[in-house]
C-alpha cells in the first residue's frame, strides 16, 4: 500500500490535500472543508475537525481565539426518513392533543 497520512478517513482527504488547500491561501475550517471535502462524510467532522484545527494552530495560520468550527447541521445522529415522516406538521397541529400513557421511565 502507498504511504498516506489521512486527516479525514471518511472522505479520504490526505495531509497532501490539506497542504494544497493551505497553499491556495485558505486558513479557515469552513474554506478548507469546501476545498478538500474533509468532514463531509458519515462522521461529519467528529473525527477530523480537531486534527485539522490543531494543524492550523501548529502552523500559526490562525489564532486559537479566532478559530471557529465549520457549520454543524442536523442530523448528527442517524434518523430514518420514515421516523421523520411521523412528525405532525408544526403549523397545522403544533402539539397533538391525545395524551400518551407511557412514561419515559419504563424504558427497559
Amino acid at each position: 500500500m502507498t504511504d498516506r497520512t489521512f486527516v479525514c478517513r471518511c472522505e479520504d482527504v490526505t495531509f497532501t490535500d490539506l497542504e494544497h488547500g493551505l497553499a491556495a491561501g485558505l486558513t479557515t475550517l469552513e474554506e478548507l472543508k469546501r476545498y478538500t471535502g474533509f468532514g463531509t462524510g458519515p462522521c461529519q467532522g467528529k473525527e477530523c475537525m480537531a486534527a485539522v484545527a490543531r494543524e492550523l494552530i501548529r502552523r500559526a495560520l490562525v489564532e486559537p481565539e479566532a478559530l471557529v468550527p465549520f457549520t454543524s447541521r442536523p442530523p448528527i445522529e442517524p434518523v430514518s426518513l420514515g421516523a421523520l415522516a411521523t412528525a405532525p406538521d408544526p403549523f397545522a397541529d403544533p402539539l397533538p392533543s391525545a395524551p400518551y400513557m407511557r412514561s419515559p421511565g419504563d424504558d427497559s
Binding site: 500500500m1 504511504d3 498516506r4 497520512t5 489521512f6 486527516v7 473525527e47
Partner: peptide, 12 residues
C-alpha cells in the same frame, strides 16, 4: 467528549 484521530502515515 469524543476521541478524534491523530494523523500519522497510514493512520487508517
Amino acid at each position: 467528549s469524543r476521541d478524534p484521530m491523530v494523523p500519522f502515515s497510514n493512520d487508517d
